[in-house]
Simulated assay, not measured.
Amino acid sequence: MLRDTWLIFRRDMTLSLRNPAWIVIGLMQPVLYLFFFGPLLENITANTPGFPPGTAWQILTPALIVQMALFGSSFVGFALLAELRTGVVERLRVTPVSRTALLLGRVLRDAVQAVVQALIIILLAFLLFDLSASVGAIALSLVIVAMLAITLSSCSYALALRLKNEEAFPAILNTVLMPVLLLSGIFLPITQGLAPDWLYAISRWNPFTHVVDAERASFRGDFSTDALLTGALVLLAMTALAFYWGRRTFQRENA
């Protein structure tokens, strides 16, 4: 299976490198938030009680790379729908390649893309703004981003294979992603000091809230906090469930 996974990964990575526009497209929105929302957040964090510890850039930068992985990896199913329409998937079905490798090679490519984009955002925040974080903190944050990309891309491919409909696919994604985004505290942290009790309680049920909290704790260097442990456990569970769903779907649909 390792050889099959490598072949699928190399194929999809080659296609991505031939069209590097994915880097620019995926970075546009986070870069705009970094330049136009970050300076405003500096004053807000300095004068508003209830914000988590850390500077404005330690709060915003990890949230932006989660947002980038959230949207970038959730829409990768469009590429699979295009391959279904053009017959690429049908041709792969008649080969002896492992059905698990068909998924694993793709999600690893998506994880690499997410990590590259996250590195660019972090580098911009370091060079142009007042971001400070240790090498270990950045490495841990990139592991979290890679796992998040694997989770979301697995779900995206599974959903695309189940629907096989290019109109229903984005409609469902937008319906799900908007409340997930707003309740995750990406733009403004949802803490007990800032949010009403009912909103804070609802946000705790959103697993991505804990992932964002873990990223922020990582950037602060708080490796012993409950936020980092909880976020890591939640993300591990989501990754395992999402990959299981994706694997089962690929095996069933590509039998």
Score class of each variant (00 low, 15 high):
I202V: 15
W57K: 08
A195C: 13
Q117A: 03
L236I: 10
A133V: 02
C155I: 02
I150H: 04
L229F: 14
I202A: 08
S203C: 06
R248P: 01
A125W: 06
G246Y: 04
T55K: 00
V116Q: 11
T209R: 06
S184H: 14
G185W: 04
T151M: 08
L15S: 03
L235P: 02
V145T: 02
R10F: 10
F243N: 07
F37M: 11
T95K: 13
N19E: 10
A69K: 00
R85C: 01
I120F: 11
A46N: 08
G38M: 02
S154Q: 04
L159E: 06
V116W: 00
V76D: 02
A46H: 11
L131W: 01
V66R: 04
A195W: 09
L80G: 03
F129Y: 11
L17W: 07
P49C: 13
R220T: 01
L70N: 06
P196K: 14
I138N: 01
E90N: 07
E167A: 13
V234R: 04
L40F: 00
M68Q: 06
Q67Y: 00
Y200T: 12
V107N: 04
F169Y: 01
T230Q: 13
A242F: 03
L194K: 06
V212K: 03
I25H: 07
P62V: 09
S98Q: 01
A214E: 03
V176K: 15
R252D: 15
F208W: 03
V76S: 14
M28I: 12
I172Q: 08
T151S: 13
T55V: 12
W198E: 15
A149S: 05
S156H: 09
M147R: 05
L140F: 05
G193L: 00
N254G: 08
G77C: 05
R252H: 09
F126E: 09
N43R: 15
A46F: 11
R11A: 08
M13A: 13
P179G: 15
S154C: 02
M1I: 12
F51I: 04
M238P: 08
A111G: 01
P170E: 08
D130M: 08
T239G: 00
P53N: 10
L41S: 04
A217Y: 03
C155M: 14
T48C: 14
T55P: 11
G87S: 11
A69H: 01
E42W: 05
T95C: 12
N174S: 15
Q29Y: 03
F36I: 11
G87T: 10
I44P: 07
D213Q: 14
S74K: 03
I25F: 10
I190K: 04
L173C: 02
L80A: 05
L119Y: 03
F169E: 03
A82V: 10
P207W: 02
Y157H: 02
G54V: 04
I8A: 10
A149K: 03
A201L: 12
A227D: 04
L81E: 14
A111P: 06
S134K: 07
I138F: 05
